[in-house]
Design a protein around this nucleic acid. Structure first.
Lengths: 368, 368
DNA sequence: TTGTACGCGTTATCAC
DNA sequence: GTGATAACGCGTACAA
């Protein structure tokens, strides 16, 4: 049924190989190999090289990289494993990876796990079978069996976007801690004091760093969040964000001044929930996100968020991979790419927001 | 520098191969091959099969698919070529492709062309070198040298989302003509008569079909668009859409009742342009899009658009590819996947829109 | 500078 | 049923 081989041979155009070029050039095929591979050992006389090259071009010779791979034990292909490419954070990473690795002749094998760990393990095993030269893992958990499996298989690994707790493998991540710190400081600077958060499961470095960034910044000014100002989502979707925000609004008689959300989709859901509760954003309540995904600049209201430099993360991850190939056994590195605040209308300090249930403030004014 | 081979061998864990399993099992490695491959020729005694299998498991044998590929001339890998994965229409197609092809053991090689035709040709050549079993091309133009190149190379090709003029290769596309026809009929049914459009370059089947859908539907009720109601964008971005809409609004003293846009991003830009001109959408002017990309349901105003079933397009494309592998030389097929109207607030008929410059209507009421 | 010969790990086609 | 053996196309140490 699925038998590509048939079709290929049925293509009737027998691929031209080194031997064909060699015959047509009157030299041995090893000579052809040397000519066509820049950086092979012995030098070749210019006239032979020229003749071979022109014959190769004429015959339309295309190297068979499968045969080369079998010989060299390197496929010049690398895997990229993501939960779901439909999440807009991944495509820019892919293009960053391509930016550094395509010029080096690498191809990228992309696989979606669909958030299924068993699928993920299976993908790694298949990629190992295919002898990928390395794997970019965007799904890395703080404690990750998949990372362990890659080590076991001896496959060079670079985590992107997230990192393991022990940081024993290389990674390029966004500085989520710094990003959330900046955002929280900005929020405090505006005058907000009654703050709520919607968090994601703490098994990922992104989710955790963002939470720690908030918590530490608040505690520096003596603030801590009561339980009824903290909500959680299982997965970062708008729907989950909406429900979490509804829980927040129902959890206490007074509503918070601002909801800091773990990412943009959750924030979008939170905005919807506020609307549904008859609240206006940002007149009655403010909302912030994280990621700056496309279109959040033109939703209603435009979302205040934190932008990651995803393309750079991909580029740097590519560089790190190349380094791993080169070095004998480099110590694993973790690169943290800075993010930047993107201020938009969803966040505005409104001490006298209409309908606002006053809540006795115990804090003086705060200056950052 | 970039020398994956080093690393691999430095991984010191020599891969276990057929011969290793054979030694440990006391049989010949060809026997091991037969055992491990369901559907090989000769039958194997159950006890040998069992022993071999358990030894293989014990040793952690992973087949080397590069070696297998060299032998079978099939890599069970396929390419997916897109302009830019960041365009949200592509990821669902990828996951559809994976849905049909992963279970069959295929891996997907993804490449972004960055809208550069030379890069695209290069990508095809590289994929050919890698002996991909087939290519999914999402960039297909009505007259496409890349499609020709694939034919020349004898690589099975399935276009996704777009199709060539002559339809000489297989494709799975959205029924853009039907989708735009439905939308236009709906718009006419609401009472709209003074219609403007923003079109994309007609070198792609999607852009052309959408335009033809509009044009034919209008002409069926005796309408045709004057030049000042037609604008073009070079590329379908929000920024370009904004500029095109500005040109439309400046092109005539009266403004149109509705702007039908070639896709959602362009529509988003058009909405911004209308805002910028002091117009309210949809009170003063309506706007429609095409694609139903994420978040357009919650922008202001929510966008009326047409949804394509992208995941299905990918799935069917996978099926078509498998068919091509199986059949000797199937006649190329073009599958058209239906789309559906998604009605939202950006489109509302307002005969007496405030500020509206009346324009003498010469048409009676229209019933669809 | 160029040719020889071997091996990369499989699959497939022979024998036995 | 199972073992031996020849490809698959290329890279490279070694010989010439």
């Amino acid at each position: 049924m699925a038998d590509p081989e048939n079709k290929r041979s049925e293509g009737k155009v027998a691929r031209v190989k080194l031997a064909d070029v060699a015959n047509a050039s009157g030299v041995h095929y090893s000579t052809v190999s040397r000519v066509l591979r820049p950086g092979s050992k012995g030098r070749i006389s210019d006239d032979v090289a020229e003749r071979v090259r022109s014959v190769a071009r004429e015959l339309g010779y295309q190297p068979n990289s499968v045969a080369a791979s079998l010989r060299t034990q390197s496929t010049r292909s690398i895997g990229l494993i993501v939960h779901d490419m439909s999440d807009p954070v991944y495509p820019p990473i892919l293009s960053g990876i391509e930016a550094t690795l395509s010029p080096e002749g690498f191809a990228v094998l992309v696989s979606n796990t669909g958030y299924d760990i068993d699928v993920e393990i299976d993908i790694v095993n298949r990629m190992a079978s295919r002898l990928v030269d390395g794997i970019f893992l965007a799904t890395t958990r703080l404690h990750d069996p998949v990372v362990a499996r890659c080590k076991e298989l001896g496959i060079p690994l670079v985590s992107v976007l997230r990192q393991t707790e022990d940081a024993t493998s290389s990674a390029v991540v966004n500085d989520c801690y710094g990003g959330m710190t900046d955002l929280t400081n900005h929020i405090l600077g505006l005058g907000f004091r009654d703050i709520a958060v919607i968090l994601a499961p703490q098994g990922l470095s992104t989710a955790r760093e963002r939470w720690l960034g908030i918590r530490d910044t608040l505690s520096q000014v003596g603030l801590s969040l009561p339980e009824h100002r903290v909500a959680h989502v299982d997965r970062m979707s708008a729907e989950n964000g909406k429900q979490a925000a509804q829980r927040l609004l129902a959890a206490a008689p007074s509503r918070p001044e601002v909801i800091i959300c773990v990412n943009d989709l959750v924030a979008v859901g939170a905005i919807q929930a506020c609307r549904g509760a008859g609240l206006s954003v940002p007149s009655d309540i403010s909302v912030s996100g994280y990621n700056d995904i496309p279109l959040v600049d033109i939703i209603d209201p435009p979302l205040t968020t934190v932008r990651m430099n995803l393309h750079d993360i991909g580029k740097e991850a590519g560089e790190l991979m190349l380094e791993q190939f080169g070095a004998e056994s480099d110590a694993p590195k973790t690169l943290r790419i800075a993010s930047q605040l993107v201020l938009r209308a969803s966040l505005r300090y409104n001490p006298a927001g209409k309908n606002r249930n006053a809540r006795p403030g115990t804090l003086g004014p705060y200056t950052p």
